[in-house]
Structures are given as C-alpha cells and as structure tokens.
Amino acid sequence: MATAEPRARIARFTLAERLMHWLLAAAFGVLLGTGFLMSVPALEGLVPRPVAKEWHIDAAIGLAAGVIVITLARARVIGRTIGDLERFDSDDGRWLAEVPRRIMSGTPAPPQGRFNAGQKLNTAVVAGLMVVSYISGFLLWYGERNTAYRFAGTINVHDDVMWLLIFLVIGHLYMALVNPATRAALAGMVRGSVDRAWAQRHHAKWVAEADRIAAADPARRSHTGASDRAGSPPPRLGGDVPAQKEH
C-alpha cells in the first residue's frame, strides 16, 4: 500500500559545508561574470573597466575571507570533509578505471563513501585551479605595481584556468541538475540531507558506516556520517534523525 510517510532521509552536509559551497558558487559567479566583462571584447564598455575590476578583486577577497572564517569556526567539520575528500581506496580506483565501461554497459559501480571518486577528484582539481587563479590573479594585480613581478605567462594561465573551471563547473551543474542518477544529491547541499535509498545505492559505504556508528552508540546517531574513514562527527544534541526508517 502506498504509504503517506515521506521517504527516509540521511543527513549528509552540515551547515558549515553548505555555507562553504554556496559561498564558493556565488563568488565564482561574480568572478566569472566580472572576468568576462574585462576580457570579452563584445562586452567591453558595458560596465566601466575599473568597476568590473574592483568587483572582481572584492569577490576574490570576500571568498578567501569567507573560506578562512568558516574553516576556523568549524575546523573539525571542515577537516573531516577534507579528509573524506582526499582519501582514495581501491574501490575508488576501480570506480575511476571503470567509467567507460559503466557508460557503455551500465555495470554497477564499486561501493562508494560519502563522496564518490569522481567527486573527490573534481574537488581536488577545482581547489587546485582556484589556488592557481589566486596566485596568477595576485601577480596580475601586483605586476601592475612592480615590474619585477610581470611575467608574460601570468594572464595566459589565468585564462586557461578559467576555461578549465568553466568546463568542470558545467559538468558539476549537469550532475546536480540534470543527470537522473545524481540530481538527488542537490538536496544534500540545499537542505543538508539526501534520500536514504538513493544514498544506499550510490554511497553505500557511507550509509553503512553511519548506521554502524548509530547502532554502536545510539546517543550519537550518525548524521553526516563517517564516510570512508574513522571518525564520525560529534553527536547532535536534541532532535532526531529517523535513521531506523527503512523503505
């Protein structure tokens, strides 16, 4: 009988993680838009260049400040997230190696943790590209003031990184908004939790770990869960995750 009960959910991202993500998304939009205003000939003159430049630099500073503040304020959570993202095991290796096979014949993927291997790799590369953007952006700014810091390659790297980031962000948006297999994840970044059955299919090791920790210590119902590695987030006091509801 169709149940009127809503489907069970499992909490995936803390407020800190979500804030970090949306801060990055908003800042990236401003940086990209002002960057286009400064470098697409067809758009030149729409906004005075000094204005676009100021917004561009302000957005970069604001993003950096926000990342630092969130990281310092929630160091434990962010540290755990980074830990989840940077560790790959053999399941991750197989996940990546079997991408063509999965696309062609839809063979099931190896079990994954809170982040799948593609997400981990994407995050690492995007983070690296953002750092390169900051370094090249700083050199562009400082090179205007000190000729010793003018390098012919700076603006080209800044441009190339932008192209790579656009490509990766388009892929990211496709997964979040379009791809039926992954768009259930969007709720995790908006509300903090995802459909539990979906999570069981696509991030089985994480769900298992979260359940195991919850069972071992009911007072510490796993929320964002331990994912692939040891160390779950600290207990949430008050309120409940209906981790026991199964469908």
Binding site: A11, R12, L15, V77, P234, P235, R236, G239, D240
Partner: peptide, 15 residues
C-alpha cells in the same frame, strides 16, 4: 512525522 533532519553543526570531541 518525519521531520527534516538537520545534520549536526557542533564541535566536540571526536569518538
């Protein structure tokens, strides 16, 4: 009712 679970946003000792 299945209230929307909110993930923890606290700091505390890890297990």
């Amino acid at each position: 009712a299945d209230a929307e679970p909110t993930p923890p946003d606290t700091s505390g000792p890890p297990p």
